[in-house]
């Protein structure tokens, strides 16, 4: 029995080895290699130059994640309290843009935020001075929030919608005002959804490069852009690119470890 099960797992193990483990090992090997293949730590010692890129990437990703959370949480809770018919429609509307091409969506934001874009023309029409948003960090954040918001809403929604209505009634029954019920029951029980929402927004946000290129005008270089440059761009240096990727991965892992530590014990709520 056990042997048979092991046998069934072989294709997956091979798959994992070839497409997950091997690339990571390759990146690690590259990261510790010089251009001629010798072992070196110079890729990492060069990293200090890019400290500003690191901090900017993480800062923008954190801001985007927080904005997504502030917008997404109430949205998810509102969804969860609608009738099931309405819920389906609302989820559909949230997902619909995701089925449109990612680049197209981001280009659309370019034409909205441009100096002569839709937004500024609308402002001019209302006799309000134009806003200079394109090619600023704000534009990058808008792009990230727009693209990643569904990844925040959906996990929170799917947890909140499963919270037993009688738990809320029990809390009311025990004297909980609406605010207290939310703070002590609904919110703690929704934390697993919040945590996976944060993960699903933060990780792509920290490594994106298209959004910053198109909406940040290349002025706001992020980690994704930096890495892309090392592999495809003028500054061809896969060894450095690998080293940056590796460091980014480790930082994200540390970040996630503390996130999950913070939420420990809360995941039991979804087991019910």
């Amino acid at each position: 029995m056990t042997n048979r099960r092991r046998f069934l797992a072989v294709p997956y193990i091979v798959w994992m080895a070839v497409f997950v483990i091997a690339p990571i090992v390759l990146i690690a090997v590259y990261a510790f290699a010089s251009r001629d293949g010798a072992f070196t730590l110079s890729n990492f010692s060069a990293m200090g130059t890019y400290l500003s890129v690191f901090s900017r990437s993480f800062l923008l990703a954190i801001i985007s994640t927080v904005v997504c959370l502030i917008l997404g949480y109430p949205l998810a809770v509102i969804f969860a309290h609608e009738t099931s018919r309405m819920q389906k429609i609302m989820i559909m509307l949230i997902m619909l843009p995701m089925w449109m091409n990612f680049l197209l969506r981001t280009y659309a934001w370019m034409s909205i935020l441009e100096s002569n874009g839709l937004l500024n023309r609308a402002l001019a029409f209302l006799h309000i001075p134009p806003l200079n948003i394109i090619n600023t960090p704000a534009a990058v954040i808008i792009g990230m929030v727009y693209n990643f918001l569904p990844f925040m809403v959906l996990p929170i929604y799917s947890v909140v919608v499963k919270i037993d209505r009688s738990l809320v009634e029990a809390a009311q029954d025990l004297g909980g005002s609406p605010a207290a019920v939310f703070r002590r029951v609904t919110f703690p029980l929704s934390l697993p959804g919040v945590l996976s929402g944060i993960t699903m927004v933060f990780v792509p946000a920290v490594s994106t490069f298209v959004i910053s290129q198109l909406l940040g005008g290349g002025k706001e270089m992020l980690l994704g852009d930096l890495i892309e440059m090392q592999f495809l761009g003028t500054a061809y240096n896969p060894q450095l690119g690998s080293a940056i990727s590796l460091v980014m991965m480790i930082v994200v892992m540390i970040f996630m470890y503390f996130m999950n530590k913070f939420g420990e014990g809360e995941d039991k709520a979804v087991l019910m």
Binding site: S166, L167, D173, G175, L189, K268, A269, L271
Partner: peptide
Amino acid sequence: VPPHKRSVNTVFQKYALFTH
């Protein structure tokens, strides 16, 4: 009068205990 202002308490059908 909303439930949280009544001096009545309830034992729910499936207990509705707070699992967290």
